[in-house]
Design a protein around this nucleic acid. Structure first.
Length: 729
RNA sequence: GGGCGGUUAGCUCAGUUGGUAGAGCGCGUCAUUGACGUUGACGAUGUCAGAGGUUCGAGUCCUCUACCGCCCACCA
């Protein structure tokens, strides 16, 4: 027995050494597993593509949970003899990364991205991203993730660039990507458009003004947008306004003098709300824009992209929204046009998630993906959608989940998924930022060209916008496998088996992967979606910098070992529910690592050498124990196959400690320490200890890969496989 | 405003198709120079949020109520 067993288990010295051994063996790569004969070439493939962490910083406990769950599934599949592939990668996270670097540069150099220029700025972002990537890659290793580094990908590397441009061009050619004037969410602070999902609504107390608009009273929180309001809208069945007919012209006194207003009747107006009458500002409000579009009304821009009033505001032109608001009310009050002011009006304002800027809707030319437009899908393996027939991207998202072809775990998220799809509007994919995939469209005068490469002849300018970061992540399951080339990887490993991710990105990402895979490949990206919850502190609070309650997975690995951290993350954590973690909990599993270590010490004390034999006959007492274990193992396998990882982990912990150590070892001890037992009896006791211990190590390996491998390497019996990692389940 | 989830032991949570309640931590008593004190044995604690229903039988299925949390949403 190696003398290291005489000391308590020290994870820090083992873990990095063991990871290195694994990595150098090349056995994270399924090609090598086949080459070296550990699995059959025809074996069932099992694939997970790692959700790429953003290169905006370092990994947190949420990533720790993600990596643990995926590694458990992967190691389990590998031990079951499947052709197991787990591809790691990182995400360029366009806006998040750009604004992070912008902030840094502003702080240290007092420069903006415009001061540096596009090229120089991109260089800075790239160097930041590189550094962040390296940190992340090493953290993933610390967690013990057995992913295939030879296939590592980045959402903004050369291969993925080709995939993105190919997908874009195909959609463009199908008419599913179009450029249009639409009302978009403009972030004046970030100077870019943002997606609906990137908005955070915040409650704000503001004033609600009732203004006299000719014979009507209109309510508003935003008098500064009212300069161009020359349409007054009401419900066609509202009896209070029956005297006014659609199209009537009314002359009235307004902010900067007399105007002519036109009456519009539309049933979308809520009669109960306010006075039941509204004026509209199509340029800066979605409802108003829709109304104006239906009735063919003028759309005048009132506020510019910096958040200042335009010349239409007359004397207020050039003022900021906040400053102008009070001044306008003062003027209206002087004219006697203010009926009433409600001082305590609570409403939600839209702010940009990344910058905190107050979103100002603007009419702009942007690129969109049409989700409701019918198109002919050439080939389809999606349940409920036939190749060669017409469908829509929305259908492509809905059908696989509806038909059960894609299973979402936990199941109740189906409802949320459908609810979201039903309310989905066209996806705005252009962003006015620099870091990301630049839109593969070039202009020369009136000519427009879309292609994988720019046109060869001179005089063309590429569209300056970049794509929403989710556009490239939506291709992730197949861009990582070599698409648009029809590679062997793509053939073998796609569709992938499991997408494991946090429930908060079900819409941003999961739904869009389904969309893109359906469009590009006519199939589904994955068979199962496993959604994990948020990792919280011991009191159930979100971990945050301001609270200082965060736990760093790397610190955990240093203090308790990655194995302990993994167990603590996984036990008691069912799909879709949040999990609380504390140092006490992690410490409990460090103790467990040590317990295993000491079991090894005891077992090896009595088994300096060991011969496995398949037909070893044991007495009934020990036989019962073996039967008991077999049942336990069956139950475990079932739990793992149904992805109830928490149950499997808990069962194993309980079996190893409270059955094997507390009962079986104690029983064996009685035999081994007694003077009166025969040699045969002693042999049986030794055998059962060794046999069951090895079984436990194997079963525990997916959960606690390091300590189990470390012990396995010291076992005396002749092993035909170099690592427990590639042992048979 | 719309949708979804939760409410089980002091704490954190399991509980697969309905069959007399479980784990970990914590707590109490005791043990122990024997693989391990990062230990062992034994033990206590629950009207499973409340009300009603279906059933031979409900933590589990149905309805309602209360509280907590999350997501979505352009209320002028």
């Amino acid at each position: 027995m190696n003398s290291k067993f005489l000391k308590p288990y020290d994870p820090t010295s083992s873990e990095s050494r063991i990871y290195k051994l694994w990595e150098e063996s090349g056995l994270f790569n399924p090609d090598n597993l086949v080459k070296e004969g550990f699995i059959e070439a025809q074996a069932v493939p099992y694939t997970i593509i790692m959700p790429p962490p953003n290169v905006t910083g370092i990994l947190h406990m949420g990533h720790g949970l993600m990596l643990t769950i995926e590694d458990v599934l992967i190691r389990f599949a590998r031990m079951q003899g499947k052709r197991t592939l787990w591809i790691p990668g990182t995400d360029h996270a366009a806006i998040a990364t750009q604004s992070r670097v912008e902030k840094d540069i502003l702080k240290t150099e007092k420069q903006s991205r415009h001061d540096l220029g596009r090229e120089e700025f991109i260089k800075r972002v790239e160097s930041f991203a590189k550094e962040s990537h390296d940190t992340i890659a090493s953290q993933i290793r610390v967690m013990g993730a057995s992913c295939d580094w030879s296939r590592e990908a980045f959402t903004l590397d050369d291969k993925r660039e080709i995939a993105v441009r190919t997908a874009f061009k195909r959609m463009y050619d199908q008419g599913l990507i179009y450029r249009g004037e639409r009302l978009v969410n403009w972030d004046p602070k970030g100077q870019t458009t943002i997606a609906d999902d990137e908005i955070v609504y915040e409650e704000e107390k503001t004033k609600f003004y009732y203004l006299k608009y000719g014979p009507f009273i209109i309510g508003t929180t935003r008098p500064e947008t009212k300069f161009g309001d020359k349409y007054v809208v009401m419900h066609p069945l509202d009896e209070r306004y029956a005297d006014y007919k659609h199209g009537d012209k009314i002359n009235l006194e307004w902010i900067n003098g007399p105007i002519e207003a036109t009456v519009i009747k539309d049933e979308r107006i809520d009669r109960e709300l306010g006075t039941g009458v509204m004026t509209i500002t199509p340029s800066h409000s979605q409802v108003d824009f829709d109304l104006a579009t239906t009735h063919g009304l003028d759309k005048e821009q009132i506020i510019d992209t910096k958040g200042k009033l335009l010349p239409i505001a007359g004397e207020f032109a050039g003022m900021k929204i906040k400053d102008a608001r009070e001044k306008i009310i003062e003027k209206l009050a002087l004219k006697g046009l203010v009926e009433k002011i409600d001082e305590n009006y609570i409403h939600n304002i839209a702010t940009a998630e990344r910058t905190g800027g107050i979103v100002e809707p603007q009419i702009m030319t942007q690129w969109f993906v049409a989700v409701n437009k019918p198109f002919k899908i050439p080939h389809s393996e999606i349940n409920g959608i036939k190749g060669g027939e017409e469908t829509t991207l929305k259908e492509i998202m809905r059908k696989p989940v509806e038909s059960g072809q894609i299973k979402i775990e936990p199941g109740y998220f189906d409802k949320t998924y459908f609810h979201w799809i039903n309310n989905l509007r066209d996806w705005c994919i252009s962003r006015q930022i620099w870091y990301g995939h630049q839109i593969p469209v070039w202009y020369k005068g009136e000519e427009v060209y879309c292609g994988i490469e720019g046109p060869n002849d001179g005089g063309w300018t590429q569209d300056p916008d970049t794509l929403d970061t989710w556009f490239s992540s939506a291709l992730w399951t197949f861009s990582t496998l070599g698409w648009p080339e029809m590679t062997e990887d793509l053939e073998i490993y796609h569709p992938t088996d499991v997408l494991e991710t946090g429930y908060e990105i079900l819409f941003f990402w999961v739904a869009r992967m389904v969309l893109m895979t359906g469009f590009c490949l006519g199939t589904i990206p994955f068979k199962t979606v496993y959604l994990h919850g948020t990792v919280r502190d011991a009191k159930g609070r979100k971990m945050s910098k301001s609270l200082g309650n965060g736990i760093d997975p790397i610190d955990v690995a240093k203090e308790f070992g990655a194995d302990a951290g993994r167990m603590a993350l996984v036990v008691g954590t069912s799909a879709g529910t949040d999990t609380n973690i504390s140092k006490d909990k992690i410490k409990g599993y460090k103790n467990f690592s040590n317990k295993l270590w000491n079991m090894a010490r005891f077992v090896l004390t009595y088994n300096e050498s060991f011969e496995y034999s398949d037909n070893k006959v044991l007495g009934p007492k020990w036989n019962e124990r073996i039967e008991e274990w077999k049942k336990e193992k069956e139950a475990l396998t079932k739990e793992l196959e149904s992805m109830r990882i928490h149950n499997a982990a808990e069962r194993l912990y309980h079996y190893a400690w409270h059955t094997f150590a507390d009962v079986i070892i104690e029983d064996a001890k009685k035999v081994l320490l007694s003077e009166t037992t025969s040699e045969e009896e002693q042999g049986e006791a030794k055998y059962i200890l060794y046999y069951l211990f090895v079984e436990i190590l194997k079963a525990l390996h997916p959960f606690m890969p390091f300590v189990t491998e470390e012990i396995w390497q010291e076992l005396p019996h002749k092993k035909d496989r170099p690592f427990i990692m590639v042992e048979k389940w």
